[in-house]
Nucleic acid binder design. Structure first.
Lengths: 154, 154
DNA sequence: GTGGGTGCAAATGTTTTGCACTCGG
DNA sequence: CCGAGTGCAAAACATTTGCACCCAC
């Protein structure tokens, strides 16, 4: 179930490539923070990562936050949920799915018979009782796109 | 695009039923907080809801939080992302999806050719540029289930 | 050498909690 | 009536930021 050291090495290499591509310096803190995330499948939060990294080297919690933000922007890591900050609520209790703009946080609902018909693999159903399926489509909404380029091009 | 008053009324009725079912008292604060969520498709956060409700009646922000938690437990509202609290990270940059335990926050990855092949409806693609599709399967993991019942029943 | 990265500490933002008072059932 | 719900204020978390120092390039 856990990763082999070959897989971790491969991830490390991809991370280094992502840093170079984005002009990020390779520091001890970055490699060690990344190493902790790459070595686990537990999807840790900033504090859990910090706790594990500080067993090996000294890093401050705020550096962990800055490192996570930098690695995410570089595409070396992902976050489990696209939405940061405050929890958002919805009175729509019918089955539905979301388009989320990662730039401004816009959320729009849509429904999909195709997604509602999705039946998770047996292996996943073994993990527990599945109560609902929500798809999260991440992207950039038209308004943010236009704000970036200055014009409404595709 | 916005909801009709008939739809809002219908939502209100469902909310009242959910409260009665869960033994929650019907208070002015609860109905007004709910009404604000039901009347919008903007997926507001606690602060935004509070700001709008206080235009009409006096409610404290902490009551808004408690109301949201109660309505969510009663099934009258939902939250956009299953995960509360701290952001969680993942070194797996390949396409994959998540099983999330809403009780303990366990997250497990799985991949699915079927989900990866999903093509969002044209109407949704009009909203912006879609960069990725993540499915979130919400449920209760086996460990939490066993902790509840005291025995590992299905 | 120099600008990006880091540590420290303090600020900001989000959510929860203890306690006394109030009101829905 | 009486306990669930509320308001207030303070605490507990989660995350960001300003500034001085340091090191990867």
């Amino acid at each position: 179930m856990s990763l082999t050291s070959a897989e971790i090495q491969q991830r490390q290499a991809r991370m280094l490539a992502a840093c170079r591509r984005d002009g990020l310096r390779i520091t001890r803190q970055r490699t060690e923070v990344y190493r902790e995330i790459a070595a686990t499948e537990a999807h840790p939060d900033a504090e859990a990562i910090h706790a594990r990294v500080t067993r090996r080297i000294a890093v401050s919690l705020d550096t962990v936050y800055r490192t996570l933000a930098a690695l995410e922007k570089a595409g070396a890591i992902g976050r489990v949920s696209a939405l940061h900050g405050a929890a958002r609520f919805d009175a729509n209790t019918a089955k539905h799915h979301h388009f989320v703009c990662t730039e401004c946080g816009l959320v729009r609902d849509f429904s999909s018979a195709e997604l509602d018909a999705y039946c998770p693999p047996e292996a996943v159903r073994q993990w527990g009782e599945i109560l609902s399926v929500h798809a999260e489509l991440r992207g950039i909404c038209n308004q943010c796109r236009e704000a970036r380029t200055g014009s409404p091009g595709a």
